[in-house]
């Protein structure tokens, strides 16, 4: 490769990639940097870009004093259950939309999308009253139901796209060999749309993992609070605990990063499928 081509490649490819990477990773670096600093060093001038002395106290405060140990388990359980329900129901709805013709199908699809336009804040009081009458305030089930309901429409449309990408002939061949409809879904369709399922699961998980408003409004007992509520505790009216806030953010980031690292290859395939569909 000539010197000029190397230079071109550097300016056209490596430099933009490097800048994008720095731009993306800097907030992570800064969060970790803050989490590892002593409280007095965080706002000290001149700014320390590498902590002069490292401490894990902020993690200890977030995990034990603020209650992240409990909030983490709650968030994980609620997110896992929501993902479970959304993936199952979205697959079934997506299959119905893709394979069956029925009256008002287009209107139904439009309606599914329209549900995304309702601001969440408007629904707080009605939802609160409904869950109170069901005795589900401060019960994780109220959040699982709410999140599943909010996530289902969009993910159903997404699954519709994925399933439409699977040739019908595959299903017909399986049926000729004796499969019934459910067997076709489980043995033929689901393996074929696995990347789509992972994409749906990851999007749902991330949304639930970060959701604050409903988690706070529908829960009146601290033992049932979730991670975003724990993070907002660190920002008091007159005090901001930057160290514990950063440590809490790192704790909250870990599952999301692990999940993306695992699901990355499925996500790329999955999104490609949805666009094609």
């Amino acid at each position: 490769m000539s010197w000029n081509r190397k230079l071109d490649r550097f300016f056209v490819l490596y430099l933009p990639l490097l800048l994008t990477m720095v731009f993306t990773l800097f907030p992570f670096y800064w969060t970790i940097n803050t989490a590892l600093k002593h409280e007095g060093d965080i706002v000290k001038t001149p700014t320390e870009y590498i902590p002069s002395s490292i401490t894990f106290d902020n993690f200890w405060v977030a995990w034990n004093n603020v209650g992240f140990s409990n909030y983490f388990v709650n968030s994980l359980m609620i997110a896992a259950c929501t993902v479970f329900f959304v993936v199952i129901f979205a697959t079934l709805v997506g299959y119905a939309l893709s394979r069956y013709q029925f009256k008002g199908k287009s209107a139904f699809l439009l309606l599914l999308l329209c549900t995304q336009f309702v601001p969440a804040a408007m629904l707080i009081i009605p939802l609160f009253i409904i869950f109170k009458s069901l005795g589900l305030i401060s019960n994780p089930l109220s959040l699982i139901i709410t999140y599943t309901t909010f996530q289902l429409p969009f993910n159903s449309v997404l699954m519709n796209g994925f399933i439409s990408g699977v040739p019908k002939q595959l299903e017909e061949a399986a049926m000729v060999d004796g499969c019934n409809r459910l067997q076709v879904i489980f043995y033929i369709v689901i393996p074929a749309v696995l990347p789509g399922l992972v994409a749906t699961g990851v999007f749902t998980f991330i949304h639930v993992w970060n959701e604050f408003l409903f988690a706070f409004m529908l829960t009146n007992q601290e033992e049932n609070f979730t991670l975003p509520i724990g993070l907002s505790y660190m920002m008091g009216e007159f005090n901001v605990n930057y160290g514990a806030l950063a440590a809490g953010s790192v704790i909250a980031l870990v599952p999301a990063i692990l999940m993306f690292a695992y699901a990355q290859r499925y996500l790329v395939n999955g999104l490609g499928g949805a666009v094609k569909g």
Partner: peptide
Amino acid sequence: SLMLAGCGNTT
């Protein structure tokens, strides 16, 4: 669902 319904204390 039933297990979760029992998780939280009913108000």
